[in-house]
C-alpha cells in the first residue's frame, strides 16, 4: 500500500481538485483507491464528488484534563510541562486549564506526581465514509469505484491536529481491511499541526503550487516541512502557463525535488467543476 499526501503551503492551489482527479486516474488504471479528506476544518472532497455526509461512521473523542482539587498540591509541574500554554496558575492558587488552547496531549496527566489530573472525554470530530460508485463519465474504464473517508472537526474546536491523527488511524485500518493499493491524504493548506499530522508517515507528498510569488513562498515552506518530516516530495505546478515559474524552479532545485507535472489553465475544468462533473475531466 502506497501512502501519498496531496498538500500545498498555499491555499487555493487546487489540492482537492487534483486529489479527486488523481484518485479517479488511479481507479482507471485498475487500482484500489482510498481518498482521505484530512482538511478537517473545511472538508470538501465530498462536494466535488457530488456526495452528502450522512451518518458518521465514527465519532472522535479526546481526553481533556480535569483537576481533582482534593489531590492537587499546587506544585506547578503541569504548568511547566505544557507546550500549548494551556495551563495557567496564579501564585498559591490551583492551576486553570484553558480548553481551547489544549491539544489533549496528556503531558500534564503524566507528569502530575499526585495523580490530581483526571480526564474528561469530549467529542471533537466525526468520520464519514462514502463509496464513490463508478465514474459517471462515459469514458470511465473499469466502472470500479473508490472510497472516500472524510474527517470533520466540530465547529469551535481550535486544535484540529488530534482529529487528523484519528482520521488517519481509522483510514489506515480501513485500507488494510479493503486491501487498498493507494491511499491518498488530501491535507489542509498551511504548515501547521493538522498538516503535519497528515504528512507524517507518508511515502510521498505531492506539493501543489502555482506560478505566483505567494505560490513560490509557500512552496518553500511546505518543502522545508516535508524535508524535516523526511517525506519525499514531488511538485505539481497548477495553472502553469499563467505566471512566471522561474522562482518555483529555483526553489524546487534548492530542495532537490522535481516538478512532476505542469497543469495548464483550462476553462473546461472550471466549467466541469462548477457543474459538479469534475470526474469527466481526465488528468493526464
Amino acid at each position: 500500500m502506497q501512502k501519498i499526501a496531496i498538500t500545498s503551503g498555499k491555499g487555493g492551489t487546487g489540492k482537492s481538485t487534483i486529489a479527486v482527479l488523481f484518485a479517479n486516474k488511479l481507479v482507471k488504471e485498475n487500482k484500489k483507491v482510498l481518498l482521505v479528506d484530512c482538511d478537517v476544518e473545511c472538508p470538501n472532497d465530498y462536494l466535488l464528488l457530488g456526495q452528502r455526509l450522512k451518518e458518521p461512521r465514527k465519532k472522535i473523542y479526546v481526553k481533556f484534563p480535569k483537576l481533582n482539587k482534593k489531590k492537587c498540591k499546587k506544585c506547578g509541574l503541569c504548568v511547566k510541562i505544557c507546550r500549548s500554554n494551556a495551563i495557567f496558575q496564579a501564585p498559591r492558587k490551583y492551576p486553570v486549564f484553558i480548553k481551547d488552547l489544549c491539544s489533549a496531549c496528556g503531558a500534564c496527566q503524566t507528569v502530575c506526581p499526585y495523580k490530581a489530573i483526571q480526564s474528561r472525554k469530549e467529542e471533537i470530530g466525526r468520520i464519514f465514509v462514502n463509496k464513490i460508485k463508478k465514474n459517471p463519465a462515459p469514458t470511465s474504464g473499469t466502472g470500479r469505484g473508490f472510497w472516500l473517508i472524510t474527517g470533520q472537526a466540530k465547529p469551535k474546536v481550535e486544535e484540529t491536529g488530534p482529529v487528523v491523527i484519528q482520521v488517519k488511524k481509522f483510514a489506515l485500518s480501513f485500507a488494510k481491511r479493503k486491501k487498498i493499493d493507494f491511499i491518498l491524504f488530501d491535507t489542509a493548506a498551511g504548515t501547521h499541526c493538522p498538516v503535519i499530522s497528515a504528512l507524517l508517515g507518508c511515502d510521498l507528498a505531492y506539493c501543489i503550487t502555482e506560478p505566483t510569488p505567494m505560490g513560490a513562498y509557500d512552496l518553500d515552506l511546505i518543502l522545508r516541512l516535508c524535508r524535516k518530516l523526511k517525506v519525499p516530495t514531488k511538485v505539481i505546478l497548477n495553472q502553469a502557463d499563467l505566471g512566471d515559474k522561474t522562482k518555483i524552479e529555483k526553489i524546487v532545485k534548492k530542495f532537490k525535488s522535481k516538478i512532476d507535472k505542469e497543469i495548464p489553465y483550462s476553462e473546461e475544468i472550471v466549467k466541469l467543476y462548477s457543474r459538479g462533473k469534475l470526474l469527466d475531466f481526465d488528468l493526464v
Binding site: V79, S84, N85, A86, I87, F88, Q89, P91, I98, L101
Partner: peptide
C-alpha cells in the same frame, strides 16, 4: 509563541506579584 502567548505572558506577570497591568490592548484569555 505561535499560540497561547497571552497565557504565558500572564504567567510571567503573575509571578512578579503585581496588582495592576497597564497595556495598549489585551486578549480575552
Amino acid at each position: 509563541f505561535i499560540r497561547g502567548a497571552g497565557i504565558a505572558a500572564a504567567q510571567t506577570v503573575v509571578s512578579e506579584k503585581v496588582k495592576l497591568v497597564i497595556v495598549g490592548n489585551i486578549g480575552p484569555r
